[in-house]
Design a protein around this nucleic acid. Structure first.
Lengths: 236, 236
DNA sequence: GGGGCTAAATATGTCTGAGTTATTCATTTC
DNA sequence: GAAATGAATAACTCAGACATATTTAGCCCC
């Protein structure tokens, strides 16, 4: 199912999307200056109002910066909100830099095991039920279909909810979604080679048993194998 | 009332700031509807243009959502980009929820030790020099003065740079800044009780010695003590 | 010759008013 | 009662004018 968010593509949002993709995709490089508002908006066939609102959105995400007289230009990459959900999504619409994918996996392998450990300490029965439900769906549907991948996402989200840390949840849900884009992205090149369900069950069992160390270790294992399945070039 | 940053207070930015603070501060609750553009902008004494651009900024950070006919309303908290640099800054302008501060510290104690471990493996001589410089300034100035705290920030940023992970760096710099707001915030209630420099040196030594486990452990220790210095109410 | 002040050029920022579009809500109809 | 229909409403878009700030160049003075 197509993402419901793009159901009503207001112009400013659509333009922000397009320019955002161009920026994170490297088509517009840091330091590049946009033409004046009048020329830029005319080139896009939209009004100055809509164009300006698009720029405001990009500015809020740290991708561009505008100053009177100086103009609007792409900011240095270290100023970008790389973990902003939209920025991540835009990144994975193009060909993301393998280095960055590795960075994200590395980040995930730091975050999620810790979340699993917290979840083991703080989970309630409701959380366990949610995890179990997601796990069942996953086993029943498999990761080849989108409903199965959605169940996988639900599984991870349930763990985050159980971890009881809002900041952790906000972060991991963005990164997790991005990684799932990656998976979808990689899926063209090779079929899914391995059934990840047993790994998930190990995580589930440890959390259900309130075994924090076990949950941590099982999640490390799960992510390690997930990364191996992507056959990325090894890091320098 | 005038702080240094508002030297160039474009109206839309100032309004986004004000409304943002109201939202994260709980003055406007999720589900609350804003008056129509004309009424809201008139109430603020600004034009619809400036008001709309402010709303666009807040929308880009997930704080509000506007739809034709339905109006503009504050979104559910789980949709907020809690780790957005601006959102974090706005949060700490008011009285942040102690629970959330704990969440952030917990997140930091997951992120930074991992970053330190990566740094121990990947650091170059340049990184070590930067860390050493920040450390020296810190020891010379102390954390009581703002230049000393800036040096502390530089120390942590140098570690992140050495870790060689963009995503990690983007995240930790936001969180680190926020935590430093917290420190400043807490400073009124009690004087800084302990000299944190020895802890920093242990982290530095381990990274310089390429001792990843040691760096991880030393950083855990550093953050643990930093948290203890804040005498927050213990978590439920 | 160089440093600092002044002024013009220019791109963003702001304002106003009109018109468009989409979504909600009440009504009607089957 | 559920589905189709229409009116009300709020955000959305457009267009043009004016204000503001910052850069750049030129000028004067030291």
């Amino acid at each position: 199912m197509d993402d419901a968010r793009s159901a009503s593509p207001r112009i400013h949002g659509a333009i922000a999307h397009d320019i955002g993709v161009e920026i994170v995709g490297g088509l517009r490089k840091p330091g590049d200056v946009f033409g004046g508002e009048i020329e830029a908006s005319e080139a896009l066939g939209i009004s100055r109002t809509a164009y300006r609102e698009a720029i405001r959105i990009l500015s809020a995400k740290g991708l561009v910066e505008s100053r009177p007289k100086a103009g609007t230009r792409v900011t240095a990459r270290h100023r970008w909100n790389l973990l902003d959900p939209d920025v991540l999504a835009w990144t994975f619409e193009g060909e993301p830099d393998p280095e960055f994918i590795l960075d994200l996996f590395e980040l995930r392998s730091v975050i999620e095991p810790a979340a699993a450990a917290f979840a083991a300490r703080r989970r309630t029965q409701t959380h366990i039920d949610d995890m179990k439900g997601a796990l069942d769906d996953m086993g029943r549907l498999g990761l080849a279909v989108s409903e199965g991948r959605a169940a996988d996402q639900r599984f991870h989200r349930a763990i985050l909810a159980a971890a009881g840390n809002e900041a952790l949840a906000a972060l991991a849900s963005s990164v997790g979604a991005a990684v799932s884009w990656t998976t979808k992205y990689k899926q063209r090149t090779r079929a899914l080679p391995r059934d990840p369900l047993p790994d998930h069950i190990r995580v589930y069992d440890a959390i259900a048993a309130s075994d924090a160390d076990g949950a941590h270790h099982a999640m490390v294992q799960l992510l390690h194998l997930a990364l191996a399945d992507m056959d990325l070039p090894p890091r320098a």
